[in-house]
Structures are given as C-alpha cells and as structure tokens.
Design a protein around this nucleic acid. Structure first.
Lengths: 193, 193
DNA sequence: CGCTATGTATAGCAGCGTTATGCCACACTG
DNA sequence: CAGTGTGGCATAACGCTGCTATACATAGCG
C-alpha cells in the first residue's frame, strides 16, 4: 500500500496530472485515510515521493560503469543525471521543492556521493591537482542543476543543454587542474557516449 | 489597486505567509473580486508578481556601476543578483516557478541583457577571446542560479555561496579566454565589493 | 472461541479559488 | 441639471481541496 501510493503519486506527477489526495486514493483503489495511516498526510507523502525520486536518481547514476578515465566518468554521470531529470521533469522539480527536510537525507545523498567518488578518482589519477573532490562535485552539480531547471522551466530551449553543459563541465574540471585539451576530449566522450 | 495587490502579494511572499486570495483581499481592504477585475484570477496575479520580481532584479542590477574592468563588473553583477535572491528567497523561487509564461517576457529579460552587455565589453576589451557574450552570460547565470536555489532550499549552507560562486565564475570566465590570475583578481574584486 | 488491535470506509469540517448576481458610484449625454 | 449607462466592487454560493472523527471490518493471538 505504501509503495503503491508512492508510485501512483510519482506516476501522476510524471503524467502532469494534479496530485490530489482523492484522485490518488481512487487510482490506488483505497480511501483517503490510507494516506494518513501510512504517511503523515499529504506532506508526508510528498516527502516519500521526493525520497523515491532521489532513490531513482541514485540507481540511475549507479548504472554508469566507471572507466579508467575519471573525468569521462564525471561527464557520463552528468549525462545520466540530465537524462533522468528530462524524463521526469515534474518529479525532478518536486524533489528540490523541499529537499531540505527529507525522510532519509542520507540515502538521498547517495547520488551526490557517486559524483564525489568519481572526482576523488580524478584527483588520485592526477587529473585534478590541489582540488577538493567535494568542492568539484558541488560545482558540477550546481551548474548542471541550474541549467536543467532553466530548461525544464522552458526559460531556455532544450538545445541549451548540449550547448552549455559540456562547456560548463570542462570549465569546472579545467579549473580543478585538468589539462584543457584532454579535459575537452574526456567530457565529450562521457557526455555523448 | 493593481499595484497594491501586487505589492501586498509580494510582501506576504517575502514574509513567508501563505498567499491566499482571501487574505490578500482583506489585507488590501477590498474583496476577492478585485483580483478578477484587475487580473485573470490568482494565476494572473502570480504572473504579475513574478514580473515585479524580475523588474526589481533588473533595477538592482542596473544599480551596479560599470568600471573599466568588465570581468570585475560581471562578478559584481553576480553579487548583486545573489544578494537580491537571498533577501527575497520566496519571491526568487516564485519567479522561476513558471518563468516561461510571463506577462511581459521581454521586460523580464532586461536583467539578463545587463549580463550580456558586460560580457560583450569583456570580449571587446580582449579579456574574452573567441567567446559569445550570450553563451558566457548564460553559463554564469545558470551556475549561479543552480547554486542559489540549492542554498535557498537549504540543501547547501549559506557559506557555500562564498565558497563556490567566485570559483565558478572564474572557471567560466577563464574558459572564455581570460587570463587565470587576472580573472581571479577581477572576480574577487567584483564579488566582495 | 473471544478479545484486541490495526487498517479502512464513510461522512463531515474548514479552507481554498472561482463565479453569478446585485448594487453603487461615477461619467457621459441631451 | 436630470437621466442613463457602464465599470468596479461586495455578497453569497459552488465545487474542490486536505484533513479528521467515527464506525466498521478483519487478522492475530491467548
């Protein structure tokens, strides 16, 4: 029942339908009370939905197989992140609407951890010099997040991603110490492959 | 009446109060119908509020006096942009909730135009080489936007701005062709004062 | 078998945005 | 100056929302 409600809510969100308590209960085939026994009302359900969104994102990023080029891997993670957000834009927006108070913030941070790990490998491989993996991951994340939200909000066209994401990633990675040419090649390989 | 409603709504937004039609009408000293004669219901009022948010942002950026260092100016614009967003976080979030359909999108783009103009001066001054001012401005904007939203959503602490914004701007500007050392100095000068 | 406890169905509450209706005040016209 | 529209607002009601109090069913256990 719990998972049925969460998945139904996520489905309605993806389908751009208004996620209302009554419609949700009807779809699942139960009454509105179920949301109150399994969650703390609608706010609790939204928390669970956001959590599920982060779980899906983490799974998606975990599917990106590491290679011997950590900078390529960072770009590939960015591509997977962007693809996930573009497939479920409403869910992505909802995730960050109140990402501060999540039922299990630690689990939600798993996706970010993958990024930090890859940045750490880049430091270990000597691609990044004198760079804090957390700082690099944060900057990559913030840049991509901002651009993605502008695209999802239709402020920028979808093509803006292909135009600016590789450039932004290359800028961040180069600033972290990577060689400009090599960085561009790695980013290109990871982004489009 | 129009402006009174808009300003009251913006004030309630800033005060973190729920912006409800009835409360709004009571505060302004009128009835709920006024929102329907002057706007197209609540959705129309939200559009006007977002428009007002962009207008305030544009005014704020226009107050940044240009110097003979366009890269410094870009960083100073970023600082003003961030300060404006941090002072009215709820309004800033609302602005981008549906920034696609604004009553007057052209007027809202004025803020972005200031950024493009400064980037153009950097190109003209030879600081940026082979760089499209619109692309540079877009990348700066997207990066800052993403980081700001993460801070406003309390995903990242407020200190993250001071830690990452100058680094991100320097990365973008350096990638546009600016000299690394000179860029760092300009960004630092523009950001902190 | 009976008792308990957990989860669900029902019905009703206050609040929301929206709208139909009626009134009133002001501007225009002969 | 009186008569006549017309635009803007107050009032009240409608359907919808999230939420909750209450009654009922059903599964587990001594």
């Amino acid at each position: 029942m719990r998972t049925a409600l969460i998945e139904q809510a996520a489905a309605m969100l993806v389908a751009r339908e208004p996620v209302t308590l009554r419609a949700l209960a009807t779809r699942v085939g139960t009454s509105t009370m179920a949301v109150y026994t399994h969650f703390d009302g609608m706010t609790g359900l939204w928390g669970a939905v956001r959590q599920e969104g982060f779980a899906r994102l983490a799974r998606r990023l975990a599917d990106v197989a590491p290679t011997d080029d950590p900078v390529r891997d960072l770009a590939a993670l960015g591509a997977a992140y962007a693809a996930n957000a573009l497939e479920h834009p409403a869910l992505y927006r909802a995730m960050f609407d109140a990402a501060a108070d999540l039922p299990d913030p630690e689990a939600a941070g798993a996706a970010f951890g993958v990024l930090v790990e890859a940045a750490g490998r880049a430091v270990a491989a000597g691609r990044f010099v004198d760079a804090d993996p957390v700082a690099v991951a944060t900057r990559q994340w913030a840049s991509g997040h901002g651009l993605l939200l502008l695209v999802i909000s239709e402020v920028l066209p979808r093509e803006a991603l292909a135009e600016h994401v590789p450039a932004l990633l290359a800028a961040v990675f180069t600033a972290a110490g990577d060689d400009a040419r090599r960085c561009a090649a790695s980013v290109q390989a990871g982004w489009s492959g």
